[in-house]
Amino acid sequence: MSELLYSRDFYGKALVDLGRERKDIVVLDADLSGSTRTAKFRDEFPDRFFNIGVAEQNLMGISAGLASCGFTVFASSFAIFATGRPWDQIRNTICANHLNVKIVATHAGITVGEDGASHQANEDIAIMRAIPNMRVISPCDAFETYEVIKAIADIPGPFYVRMGRSKSPVVEERAHHFQFGKGQILRNGKDCFLFAHGLMVYNSLRAAEHLEKEKISVGVVNMPTIKPLDEELVLDIASKIKKIAVCEEHSVIGGLGSAISELLSQKQPVKMTLIGIGDVFGQSGSPDELLKAYGLDIDSIVSKVRDLVRNT
């Protein structure tokens, strides 16, 4: 088992490092600064931190106003509150004006766990991805999270970055640093390719190792940038390997699976399996129990990919 780390710890660390390097970094939170780790930035740069209280629409509006004055703004909350409640502010103000606001959300996906359905954002990528000008990123581990935060601070305009609540294993197969807009092949395969983001990159790699023992050769691609999609890489793989699975801790509606399907169905049709959360709400439970219940544990991925390779 790889080392387990909190991605949000590395988000907080990246903010502090950015704050030391640059005077234009301003950070806002909506009463969750301890959990999102923006509190680390607050402690060191209190004049450049604003806690907006439990008011996410106001969080996004104030962030927009600050960005219009030339600041690079990071706005944080849990994924469910950072995307759903202020969607209109994000669409009509932040994105329509191409403002330099980086919405960085923690506690995304089903692995929020015991807090239950109201706090499990399984649709955040779908609703962010649909907005023009928005770029969507889901790093696979704590180290990639750090790289993502440093990278997007240098790219003007809006971003949505999501990460989970729990500690997650480091993906040791990563050969190079995060590059915006690029996927990275972590493992090659001949029978099928598995595209994943976030926590599911690790699970997909383990599933591929398992399938290798059954003589099924599965490639794995880390896709931290969900929008804009690395079309070149996806098309290149689909031109050679005719079975593609997408695995993500997100609804099967509107996530990376949808993005890849939208591309391949038009330009390079192949057999596909979307492994994600169905059209249902979650519930309380431990992250491991929930991953199993919603088909995102290693065994479930193995079984779905095996089925794609053997039975289609």
Partner: peptide, 13 residues
Amino acid sequence: GQGLSIALGMALG
């Protein structure tokens, strides 16, 4: 309904 937040952001800026 969004403008006062935006103006407040500018004022804090």
